[in-house]
Design a binder for these strands. Structure first.
Ligand SMILES: [Mn+2]
Ligand SMILES: [Mn+2]
Ligand SMILES: [Zn+2]
Ligand SMILES: [Zn+2]
Lengths: 142, 142
DNA sequence: TTGACAATGAGAATCTTTTTCGATACAATT
DNA sequence: AATTGTATCGAAAAAGATTCTCATTGTCAA
């Protein structure tokens, strides 16, 4: 896998944060479940299996921290809750969301890489990043 | 403007819903504020000016209904709340979101129109619609 | 070892959205 | 005109996710 804990530990240290056992446990679960877009509650359930003592507040705090450091991203799938996924530095991926079953499929592509330039010129807006969601029907549901 | 209440009234009627005074008031405010992406609470404040009796639950119920009928769309700007905007049948628009000041700029384009075909072929996913958010810095903030 | 400070767990608080329920509006039928 | 059935409404309660508070614990350098 492209992500490793050691590198993340350094990033934490660079910003004066420690790799505590709770943070490590949370990260491990996120890495283990790459592609699943877990919610805070779901991560909580996962981590509790190993450390039944961990508090939900710690999950939220850690996720917030990891977002700030750009280690993970906060996502929104028109769900009731926010979901999280690892930042995969090199590759840019987007989501296909099925109207029927809700299944979320990932796909890699930098379709809009060039387009970001145009926006700069036409709207004087400096694009740093973008998110695309495609809605429709998955193979099973169409 | 491209939207008119008469047409919406018909759409409601076709689905066995009535154009009540509350629904009309809500729609009027949404139309008046096109481009503003109002939240339920904000719409509530607006409508209350004319009808101080209206309940917040009615706002939510109506917004839900209008979403179901495709008259409006539910949006999410990583805010604490959901926001709404009119569906402008013909034109497809996207959003530029400033990291610094939070300003949201709209722009029209069907960049991905062609791309949707490719997705069908490569992922067997039938795309019906898509949403793009560009993040970066607006003219003022860069 | 001690002191300073970061990090944690528990639970309270907050805030948005949904649900419930009795009251009302309104159109169709007697 | 009175009656009935149903959609809609407002108020208030409930739900659910996230954030905040605070007392306690862990870490680490001096
Ligand atoms: Mn993903
Ligand atoms: Mn818009
Ligand atoms: Zn599906
Ligand atoms: Zn700005």
């Amino acid at each position: 896998m492209t992500v490793d804990l050691q590198k993340i530990k350094k990033k934490l240290a660079n910003n004066n944060y420690k790799m505590t056992s709770q943070r490590k446990a949370i990260l491990e679960k996120i890495i283990e479940n790459q592609g699943s877009h877990l919610s805070a509650e779901e991560i909580y359930e996962q981590v509790k299996k190993d450390d039944s003592n961990i508090g939900l507040a710690t999950i939220y705090r850690t996720l917030e921290l990891l977002c700030d450091l750009g280690i993970i991203h906060k996502l929104n799938f028109d769900d009731k809750c926010r979901r999280y996924e690892l930042d995969k530095e090199d590759e840019h991926h987007h989501h296909l969301i099925c109207f029927e079953c809700g299944e979320i499929t990932e796909f890699n592509d930098d379709i809009l890489e060039d387009f970001e330039e145009d926006i700069k010129e036409e709207h004087s807006f400096e694009v740093i990043d973008h998110r695309i969601k495609f809605y429709g029907y998955c193979q099973v549901c169409q």
